[in-house]
Computed example of a mutant assay.
Amino acid sequence: MTDKTFKLNTGQNIPALGLGTWQSEPGKVKAAVAHALKSGYKLVDGAYCYANEDEAFAAGVKREDIFVVTKVWATYNTRVELGLDKSLKSLGLDYVDLFLVHWPLLMNPEGNDDKFPKLPDGSRDIIRTHNHVDTWKLMEKLVATGKTRAIGVSNYSKRYLEQLLPEATIVPAVNQIENHPSLPQQEIVDLCKEKGIHIMAYSPLGSTGGPVMQAEPVVKIAEKHGVAPSTVLLSYHIARGNTVLAKSVTPDRIKTNMLLIDLDAEDQKALKDYSDSLTKEGKLQRYVYPPFGIDFGFPDKS
């Protein structure tokens, strides 16, 4: 599966499986990325906000063989080129393959912290008059610089995409969202498919502790195929035509996450039925939602 790719609307091929580095501790990222690339991973996903990009590419690999993703953080959404330049410097690279808007909001660029400025009451220091479409206009200008081969968004709901697309000169190549059977976000997936925007799934196991691995249909499918529940959850995205990010700094887990399978029609139906039942019962579960205090338009949070 590490050789499987999907075609972006830019004409680029993007790997189906990537290594995520969110919450990976500084000091462990370098070894994890080196092991992943040596094992056959071709995509590494990072972000300025993760504060570990300076470790990500100290491995002896050919730059052109790796698809590198990074993101502009919310304090840089009016200074996206500066945000990209900072990531490129940390990564030690001249360009990335994909640059994403991490979240569609602006935190105070002149606040009391570079990444997480806060108000005196401890809440996030957010500029609420900012329009996320203005950030996208700045992103579009980056393509001509050669510093990124494609641009996209992250954590965009259907509502926010519908606000963005009529104003966009360049359609986002990717929307990176939390995605798993407990949060299928089908309304976003369907709109992105219609508009030619590729889905990249993060937290495919349900974030820390992998809670979705205990879901009954996931366990049954894993037993049927003689694989780990994590294998089922990662394979779920490939079956949906999406790229999935597997996050680990453990060598054995990094290799295990490569052992994906083809889910048959029965497997896919069981997982869809599970998602549909959670949707109907109002029991969808989102695991990643920072306390920004903003309604981003996700049905389970609006």
Rank of each mutant, 00 (worst) to 15 (best):
274 Y>A: 04
244 V>I: 08
271 L>F: 14
223 E>W: 10
164 L>I: 01
230 S>T: 13
24 S>K: 03
58 A>Y: 07
67 F>Q: 12
6 F>V: 02
85 D>C: 10
28 K>R: 11
269 K>P: 08
3 D>E: 15
97 D>R: 14
165 L>D: 01
301 K>H: 09
142 L>P: 02
31 A>S: 14
231 T>K: 12
34 A>T: 12
150 A>N: 05
7 K>A: 11
143 V>R: 07
38 K>N: 12
133 V>G: 01
256 T>E: 15
69 V>F: 02
100 L>G: 01
235 S>P: 05
157 S>Q: 07
292 F>W: 15
66 I>L: 13
21 T>E: 03
226 G>H: 04
45 D>G: 09
156 Y>E: 00
191 L>Q: 00
193 K>N: 02
151 I>G: 00
245 L>C: 09
195 K>P: 04
140 E>Y: 01
201 A>H: 06
118 K>L: 12
280 K>C: 10
120 P>Q: 07
4 K>M: 08
168 A>E: 07
271 L>N: 09
17 L>K: 04
170 I>K: 00
246 A>H: 15
139 M>E: 03
8 L>M: 12
219 V>M: 06
28 K>M: 11
150 A>S: 15
89 K>C: 04
75 T>V: 11
252 D>L: 14
291 P>S: 06
106 L>N: 01
113 D>H: 10
265 A>M: 07
220 K>A: 06
202 Y>W: 14
59 A>R: 09
273 D>N: 13
176 Q>Y: 02
258 M>E: 14
98 L>Q: 00
110 E>I: 07
161 L>G: 01
34 A>F: 05
197 I>P: 00
39 S>C: 07
107 M>D: 02
286 R>Q: 14
150 A>W: 04
105 L>I: 13
237 H>A: 05
137 K>D: 03
204 P>N: 10
173 A>V: 09
93 L>R: 10
265 A>L: 08
201 A>L: 08
154 S>L: 05
82 L>F: 05
114 D>A: 09
160 Y>R: 00
153 V>S: 00
